[in-house]
Design a protein around this nucleic acid. Structure first.
Lengths: 304, 304
DNA sequence: ATGAGGTATAGATTATCTCTATGCATATGC
DNA sequence: GCATATGCATAGAGATAATCTATACCTCAT
């Protein structure tokens, strides 16, 4: 059976995206006649007209749309093949794009980067800090190879692996009544002024669920943009809050005069985990990175 | 990003299947050095060793297995792309492989073939008669583009469309008591000697469910290999049976001296439908064929 | 040892891909 | 209304890469 060339499909994909022979040729780094000829040949091979040549550029026919969509998946899967081969050959020896949520990134990345550098000297790690939803969008869109997030997080087409339990600690001004109370319980928070992170941070939702309150009930007026800010606000006497042990151990309260105390029991907190696209060719490499993270967090956090 | 060639993937797929450079070269209709060079280049591109060159042929490395699997899906989807383009351009203008179950094929195909020939003169229709399960296996394996079966039939990865309701008629020797009974009801069959088709025919299961009896309870000693045989057995006085209207209208009882009567109510029967692989590029063409079948059956059967 | 089966290498040939240069059609500006 | 700009097609030359034949090399079996 006669088959098109991947090159032809690449050209046609570019043509479909740009809607112009010349611009498509540019993005493919070939001249316009080259691309024109290739498309013509593709049409001859498929025995269908794929594009309408118009005065100003080109538009796809119905068949063209169909072929363009299929071409995209073929190209994507070929890239996956290359990535998978590379992973199988020598894992973590090229570019890897890792995302992390803001309440994890500053406290985990400094720990793992040296270890990764040592274990995988050829690894070029690109980092992106963003909130869970946007990270997972990136993962799905193949812009990220994996993401450090808080589990559980249900998302179709995403696979996850838990790495460590991250306990929530209570934080309050030294003068606050709860700072001295014996046997600290989550229910004690019901009465207090609980400060939260901005909307979109999953830690905000976790904190709210700990307080057993609806999402918008608490302190909507003030919310912090980062854990560091949150600590400063607590230190300034604006209220109390929760801080994950991960951040506390990393010294997020250093230099401030706040009381930091664990809850008695049960252990309340979140699960730090790694997420990747289901069927990703770099799943194995993601797990390797997860292993390094797990190892790095072993000191303070409870591994899973 | 650098990509392999589809040709290279084809070569590698052949190598993976045959386990030999020379035999792979043969199946690809190139010489062995050509294929060897292509594989070498592919390995260089992916920066992984894909095959272990052994004294007697070659075996895949772990990376090779991974790449081979992915190469197969890429190649399959590229073929789908070609088929889809072809369908979009001029539907039913090349080879189409249609399956049909034995209790449908002889009565439907003669009706639709002339119509198809007229409507789609370029169509080259390849036919295969087999039982449902094997047909659907073929559909899944891309050996068949569609299959005429009796619905409902649950199968993962298969999509179906109902075409017509095919009522069951009662058939008995003229002398049989039930041949003259007023108001024929399925329950009347409980007392009778019901003849069935061989195991594997879905019509056998349908008939049994009409009789409201467990699969093996009835006449296990004798079973017919075809509807024609079944009719002859009934004519010979071996028992009674059910015949779909489709076959009756086509004259399956012609030349035999049997009584053929409808049941009073409710209408009992089966649904004739078309099945194709989910995501098949030829889904549209399958539907076109389904339309012809529906049209052809309009006379006697109840269209859906 | 020697031959058979199977893969790698070398060099020549051929096919193809890509480029530059140019022509043609259609819309835009003066 | 004519000139001009934009965008695609075509032609021919040159560079590249694919494929072939011929042959060397290796391993196993007899």
């Amino acid at each position: 059976m006669h088959m098109p060339t991947l090159r032809q499909l690449q050209f046609f994909d570019a043509l479909a995206r740009t809607g112009s022979f010349s611009r498509a040729a540019e993005t493919c780094h070939v001249t316009q006649p080259t691309l024109s000829a290739a498309i013509k040949e593709l049409e001859a091979l498929l025995q269908v007209q794929l594009v309408e040549r118009e005065a100003r550029g080109a538009s796809l026919t119905h068949a063209g749309e169909e072929v363009a969509a299929r071409a995209r998946t073929v190209l994507a899967e070929t890239q996956d093949l290359v990535a998978a081969a590379h992973e199988a050959g020598k894992p973590l020896s090229s570019a890897f794009r890792l995302g992390a949520i803001p309440t994890v990134a500053p406290y985990v990345l400094p720990k793992i980067l040296p270890k990764l550098r040592e274990a995988y000297p050829d690894l070029k790690l690109y980092l992106r800090e963003d909130m869970t939803e946007r990270l997972l969008e990136g993962v799905r869109a193949r812009e990220l190879d994996a993401a450090l997030i808080a589990l559980p997080w249900d998302a179709p087409g995403i696979e996850t692996e838990p790495l460590a339990e991250d306990e929530f600690l209570f934080i309050a001004p030294k003068s606050h009544p709860l700072a001295a109370k014996n046997g600290l319980d989550p229910e004690d928070l019901a009465e207090a002024d609980v400060l939260l992170l901005e909307d979109g941070h999953c830690l905000r939702d976790h904190a709210l669920s700990v307080c057993s309150l609806p999402t918008r009930a608490k302190s909507t007026e003030v919310s912090a943009t980062s854990l560091q800010t949150l600590v400063h606000m607590v230190a300034g006497g604006l209220g109390v809050s929760l801080v994950p042990r991960l951040a506390a151990d990393a010294g997020v309260t250093a230099g401030t005069d706040v009381s930091l105390r664990p809850f008695t029991h049960p252990l309340i907190g979140r699960t730090i985990g790694l997420a990747w696209r289901a069927g990703s060719p770099r799943k194995g490499e993601a797990r390797l990175i997860g292993e390094v993270v797990r190892e790095s967090l072993k000191g303070g956090l409870v591994p899973v």
